[in-house]
Simulated assay, not measured.
Amino acid sequence: MTVTTRARAWMVRRADGMVLGFTDHDATLTFDGIRFRPDHGMSARALVQATGLSVDNSEAEGALSDDAITERDVLAGRWDGAEVRMWEVDWTDVSARRLVFAGSLGEIARSQGAFRAELRGLSEPLNAARGRVFHPRCSARLGDGRCKLALTGETFAIQTEVADIKDGRILRFADFPAYDAGWFERGSLLVLTGSAEGLSATVKNDTALPNGRREIELWQGLGIAPVAGDRIRLVAGCDKRAATCLNKFNNFVNFRGFPHLPSEDWIMAPQAGSRRG
């Protein structure tokens, strides 16, 4: 590969499977079943890669154009964590190429019709905490393989239609089934239809109103707000306490916390646990 025929090509794959390819060459390149367009949808700065397991340091930037990466999708979080691969390629012979980066998109900032995204290398997951946490509250997520609770039927999950929305994060419902007040607090909301389909959020407050109405407040508004008539799925909330696991979910056999651990106050108290002579 000579300098005069060298180009860069990068592929971005979202979690939903959508794939986009870009190149800084002036013509389309095709390899690995991907068309890399000479488009300004995305470009990347020079990579700074260290040996060993340190995190690669780079940025991707580009325009929020309708035919590539749209501001609507960025705001909705659809590009968060997208897979990124970058090659140096000989545009006269695309089989002569070298993979120079593999990782994912990190934090995305937007300004004046453009975006800038952090590129995270393959070693980024090593920064996450590993191992089991010994804590009085449960470490499992409601319904996962360790919790084992089946979120089927309408006891712990429900599908319903939005009647109204306020400030992008307060959703109101009519003819809502009878649930205890606060049943969905700390739970999750998933949009099933409409322009916000696939987006999810965590429930902050769940208020039962008269005449079968319900108000659900989210901790943070969705990037694309649902509208009246959109269908959503609500899952009951879990505060990770042993009493909740037993009384609300009847699932204490799968509780993954340690409710009998002594508190920090007990551990730090003078002569805690000592025998008296």
Rank of each mutant, 00 (worst) to 15 (best):
F176W: 11
G21K: 00
R116L: 09
V94P: 00
R45N: 10
A109P: 03
E88H: 08
G17I: 07
L122H: 07
E61N: 15
G106R: 03
A15C: 03
A76W: 05
M268E: 15
F252T: 09
G113S: 11
V203D: 02
R256G: 04
S139C: 06
T160S: 02
L142H: 06
T155R: 15
V235Y: 03
L126Y: 11
L122C: 06
S200L: 00
E59D: 13
A228C: 02
D32E: 13
E61H: 12
R132H: 10
S111D: 15
W219Y: 15
R276L: 14
D32Y: 05
D90Y: 03
L99I: 11
K248F: 00
D265A: 14
D32H: 04
V203R: 07
Q271L: 12
E215D: 03
V12I: 15
A163N: 10
G103R: 04
V203N: 07
P136K: 13
T70N: 04
A129P: 08
K204H: 14
V48C: 05
L75K: 10
A76T: 01
D265R: 14
F255T: 10
A128I: 01
V203P: 11
G17N: 08
R98K: 14
D16M: 01
A82H: 08
A27D: 10
A269F: 06
G103V: 00
R233D: 03
R137G: 11
R6Y: 02
R276N: 04
D180S: 12
A225I: 06
D56V: 13
L199H: 05
P177D: 02
S104I: 02
V191G: 00
G221Q: 15
R132Q: 12
S111V: 10
R146G: 03
A157S: 15
A60W: 08
T193D: 02
T28G: 01
Q159N: 13
A68Q: 11
P210R: 11
S263Q: 07
T244K: 10
D26N: 11
P125N: 04
L149M: 09
L142C: 09
L246Y: 04
C238S: 05
V253L: 10
E118P: 01
A109C: 00
A117W: 07
P210K: 08
E264G: 10
M86I: 14
T244M: 12
E185L: 00
F22C: 01
S274K: 09
G103Y: 01
I34Y: 01
